[in-house]
Amino acid sequence: MLSETTLKKIDREVAKYPEAQKQSAVMAALVFAQDELGWLSKDAIAAVADYLDMPAIAAFEVASFYNMYDLAPVGKYKLTVCTNLPCALSGGVHAADYLKQKLGIDFNETTADGKFTLKEGECMGACGDAPVILANNKRMHCFMTPEEIDKLIGECK
């Protein structure tokens, strides 16, 4: 289920924790699995749990608790916009509206071509840089004006 490369990355995480605490690596391991497979299927979660010698349901608890894990397929580009109050004061909600209109989808929807998924985000600890868009969980785009958003979408091939 998981590639050698992913397992190697997991091993590196496991090594950060005391010997009897392999489970500590589950969050990172689920991130790697999601990176590799695009989303976390039940089999992916079970594979991670198995690799870390933990009950599958315990891994599922983790995967379902933290909201950057995707328990269903998402588009190639998952864009998460923070709309929390500090961001909203500087256009966070308007940026989200702009994206919705531009992509023709609402929050938690994926474009028909499977390219984009839009998510509403909670505070990302970047309120001073509003509007903020997190791309595929990992790249944060700040000060997103309409032009910047157009540019970002254009760059998503």
Binding site: P55, I57, F65
Partner: peptide, 10 residues
């Protein structure tokens, strides 16, 4: 002795 149930989601 084996976690067969969990509380998922939040």
């Amino acid at each position: 002795g084996l976690m067969e149930l969990g509380q998922a989601f939040r």
